[in-house]
């Protein structure tokens, strides 16, 4: 499979979105919590509390929507600053109540628009990066589809970062890269190769800890095993005292 095949798969309309993961892994236990308490409720970010094997966890996801209406409603998974601020509010809440955080990342990028700039898109992302680095509870981020630059990283400063096999994670879209490099945004296949954005490339580069194999249909077996993996990982991370956890997290990013 080429890098561009992964780009296509990561963006496919029928690919499960954050809501699918939340529903399949946490079932009815998930309760959604809304709003950033500052401006509004950004529907590109879904968050709340759920139960995982008897313990509470905080769940945050970038949600693209599963059909055209939902996609419009959720701005195609491109969050505004208030989305990142909602995510941070929920993560801070998780810290207060000593529950781990799981993030599902799927976005082509943070939204580029007038309101987003006026309300400090850069500042909102920057604050998440800073605060997540020292959040005193375990954080696990899973890239399930597109990992578009700073808008994805704002939910991926974590103790472990995993990727679905056909998810992508990149500093710039292949189209953007191609138009800068060759003044031709149609050369996305070549650009996809250059950017080293596939799960296998990123595993080799040490950017992610784990690749989640994708069966042909992302069926229930995958969600069940993913649920077990998440639970085991939280158990492992919760065994560290906080200072050890935070210093491991710092060094995880310090090495790049």
């Amino acid at each position: 499979m080429s890098a561009f095949d992964s780009v296509t798969a990561a963006r496919a309309n029928d690919r499960p979105t954050a809501i699918d993961y939340i529903t399949r892994i946490f079932g009815d236990s998930f309760m959604e919590l809304h709003g950033d308490r500052r401006f509004s409720d950004d529907k590109a970010v879904i968050g709340g509390i759920a139960e995982l094997n008897g313990s509470a966890v905080t769940v945050v996801g970038l949600e693209k929507g599963r059909n055209l209406n939902e996609r419009m409603d959720r701005n195609f998974g491109s969050a505004h600053p208030e989305g990142y601020r909602k995510a941070l509010r929920l993560m801070k809440q998780a810290e207060k109540f000593h529950r781990p955080v799981i993030c599902f990342v799927d976005t082509s990028g943070a939204y580029c628009g007038i309101g987003a700039e006026e309300r400090g898109q850069g500042q909102a992302i920057a604050e998440n990066l800073m605060e997540m680095m020292t959040l005193e509870t375990p954080i696990l981020s899973i890239l399930i589809g597109e990992g578009g630059s700073g808008g994805a990283l704002a939910l991926a400063v974590a103790d472990e970062v995993w990727m679905l096999e056909n998810a992508i994670y990149s500093v710039i879209s292949p189209e953007g890269c191609a138009s800068i490099l060759w003044k031709d945004s149609s050369k996305t296949a070549e650009a996809s190769e250059c950017l080293k954005l596939t799960s296998h490339d990123l595993f080799k580069l040490g950017v992610i800890e784990r690749i989640i194999r994708e069966p042909k249909n992302l069926d229930s077996i995958m969600f069940d095993s993913l649920k077990n993996l998440i639970a085991q990982t939280f158990e492992k991370l919760e065994a560290y005292d906080i200072q050890t956890l935070l210093s491991k997290r710092y060094n995880r990013f310090r090495k790049f």
Partner: peptide, 18 residues
Amino acid sequence: ARMQEGIMSLMQMAKTSG
């Protein structure tokens, strides 16, 4: 970010913020 360094450039945002 410097596109020519791909994801490594993105990681600098987290590293410096830390």
